[in-house]
């Protein structure tokens, strides 16, 4: 028994020795952010923590505090210090070429994320890559509505007439698609052009999260979308979730932005995400944070290991045009 326990513990200790080995032993991966007081950047940074752990890389965050001069200085500093790769979310997209030119002599990979950079800039350096969001809003909005209505049509059909009165700030594609004669199930909509907060409008589609919060505030004044039990509900959908809703929704029942703390906890300055979690807004199309950061880390890891940076046969959430070093990342749904 003692020999067996000793053998097993030795094995465990050996495994522990390997557990801490990162793939970039010779230098960190530097992650340069535009402004970490921006809730969108905070979410991306949190996602980056996850992706870096997934790919087992040593890394460090840098905050340019919305100054492109500071960001370029930071870039030079990390390159001088011997970083093994750079992931950068630009303060000013006009500095993209400067960034590429600065990195090039150091022969390390650089990935620009979350912004669409001109392909010629990326092509000017063989280890430059661009991972950016891919907009197919119409289809995503349609899927979002479809997913929701499948299980919740009766919940928002307040007058029970099997038809939804809709106020649409987004575009008619989703409702046109869902009411097409050949569809099954087919939904019926009646579009109105004045937004009413008295419950007669049963479905509201907005095109951005700030607008969705404004609409929500007005609805709540009339007694709608006030509680998690969804007793008086108007279906509300939007694009984006990082808008800080706390300081706007202030009727004593909703948490305020005082959840904003240090970097680790900045995520929950009561954003539209939290509003959706509470069931007050039904869904949103959002940036695929994990998709962007995982792709950026995968590219850096592949370059360090000497493999092809962008693998063949990417998952459905990505799109890479042949021969380019651009990867488009589709948006995802939140709440439905």
């Amino acid at each position: 028994m003692k020999k067996l326990v000793t053998l097993l513990l030795t094995l465990v200790l050996c495994m522990a020795c390997f557990a801490g080995c990162k793939i970039n032993k010779d230098g960190e991966i530097s992650v340069l952010w535009s402004d970490k007081s921006d809730s969108l950047v905070v979410e991306l940074a949190d996602s980056m923590d996850r992706s870096m752990y997934l790919y087992n890389m040593e890394y460090k965050h840098y905050d340019a505090e919305n100054s492109s001069t500071k960001q370029l200085d930071q870039l030079e500093d990390v390159l001088e210090a011997g970083c093994q790769g750079v992931i950068i979310e630009l303060v000013d997209i006009a500095t993209a070429q400067t960034v590429i030119d600065t990195v090039k002599p150091y022969n390390v990979p650089v990935v620009i994320i979350n912004q669409e950079v001109d392909t010629t800039i990326i092509e000017s350096y063989e280890k430059a890559f661009n991972v950016r969001p891919y907009y197919t809003y119409e289809q995503e909005y349609t899927v979002m509505l479809e997913n929701y209505l499948k299980d919740n049509f009766k919940l928002i059909d307040r007058n029970g007439d099997n038809k939804l009165t809709v106020y649409n700030e987004y575009g008619s594609y989703p409702t046109d698609f869902l009411s097409a004669p050949e569809r099954s199930p087919k939904y019926e909509f009646e579009t109105v052009y004045d937004i009413a907060y008295d419950g007669s409008v049963e479905l509201i589609l907005t095109a951005d999260d700030a607008r969705a919060v404004e609409v929500l505030v007005e609805l709540r004044k009339q007694g709608f979308n006030k509680d998690k039990l969804q007793t008086h509900l108007v279906g509300l959908f939007t694009v984006g979730i990082d808008q800080n809703a706390g300081v706007i929704i202030d009727d004593g029942k909703v948490r305020e932005g005082d959840a904003l703390k240090d970097y680790q906890n900045k995520l929950a300055a009561y954003s539209v995400m939290n509003v959706i979690d509470d069931g007050l807004i039904q869904g949103a199309i959002v940036l695929n944070d994990d998709g962007i950061t995982e792709m950026a880390c995968e590219i850096i890891a592949n370059v360090i290991k000497g493999k092809p940076a962008i693998k063949e046969g990417l998952d459905e959430e990505y799109f890479n045009e042949n021969g380019t070093r651009n990867v488009d990342v589709k948006y995802v749904l939140y709440g439905v």
Partner: peptide
């Protein structure tokens, strides 16, 4: 407050 969406760290 963050429900099922705690930060990664």
């Amino acid at each position: 407050y963050f429900g099922g969406n705690q930060t990664f760290l």
